[in-house]
Design a protein around this nucleic acid. Structure first.
Lengths: 154, 154
DNA sequence: AAGATAATGACAATCATTCTCGATAATGGT
DNA sequence: ACCATTATCGAGAATGATTGTCATTATCTT
């Protein structure tokens, strides 16, 4: 044991590691892969990428790793309109935030909206709700995709 | 049935009926059921309600009816966190709006946020996006459910 | 080093939703 | 009204993402 046990054993585990969890090759592979990907990807896409990368990780393991990371707040999850979950690393340290996502290429920009946070919370409280949370995502066509595609609707 | 048979449904393509679509008992049943339900319900819940009501409608038909109504803009759809779609009639005439939904009982309140609309649009445009849209839903525990359940998180 | 036990992987199971296709019934024209 | 057309229905099979099972393996604690 190298780390000095200073009385109460506060967080002798690395950031994002809950006590009782273990560092494995598979989880490291998933975490590292996410560092090299900028856009939201499904669990299965990430699994394929690992395979092509020579990494051999089971699909169920990828799901478990992503869930764990999401629960720990290390990655963002959004629900695509077809119901599948998409994952992406999020800016370290930045807490709650939202996403501006290109419908075509998936380009993602993190955005903050303190006013919106306040507003949604107030709406909940004003209506007698507690434990208020919200989902907010912005979609559109990024400059590149807009230039490429003709106007979709007249 | 002694009630006037041609009371509520006009045969000459009522509002919301695209040409080429037909008015059937099943779709009427789904539409009417939605009138009596205030909260978001899954397709399967609605199917069960129809069954208990004596109405015999196939599950696939309920899905098809809901999809058609959603596509026509007659009902609202939200994606629950488990990925399943929830449906609810929306206030006639009211255009774009958002929802405050109780996580436990599904109680739903429609809310408007003109400022949020402006903000999301601005965020998109400022980043070079066009054709900007967004999703925004607020979740929480309504007064009743909060009183019933102990605080979920210490 | 050794034991306790998270974590893994291959595969089965689940669950919402969609598809298939023969049967049925709503519409429009006559 | 009657009929032909064809949208819609219903029951079950199929799909596809995600989760559960469980024997085996690898990590952490002592």
């Amino acid at each position: 044991m190298a780390a000095p046990p200073t009385g109460s054993d506060v967080r002798s585990t690395p950031i994002g590691r809950a006590s009782g969890t273990r560092a494995t090759r598979q989880r490291a592979a998933v975490a590292e892969l996410l560092l090299s990907v900028d856009d939201f990807r499904s669990a299965q896409q990430l699994h394929d990428l690992l395979r092509h990368d020579g990494q051999n990780v089971g699909l169920a393991t990828v799901y478990r790793a992503l869930q764990a990371m999401a629960a720990a707040g290390d990655i963002d999850v959004i629900l695509a309109s077809n119901g599948q979950s998409l994952y992406r690393r999020c800016g370290q340290g930045t807490g709650h935030h939202h996403h501006l996502v290109c419908r075509v290429c998936g380009l993602t920009i993190e955005v903050d909206g303190p006013a919106v946070e306040r507003w949604t919370h107030k709406v909940g409280v004003d209506n007698g709700f507690v434990d208020v949370s919200h989902t907010l995502d912005i979609f559109g066509l990024c400059r590149t995709c807009a230039a490429r595609a003709p106007s979709p609707l007249p």
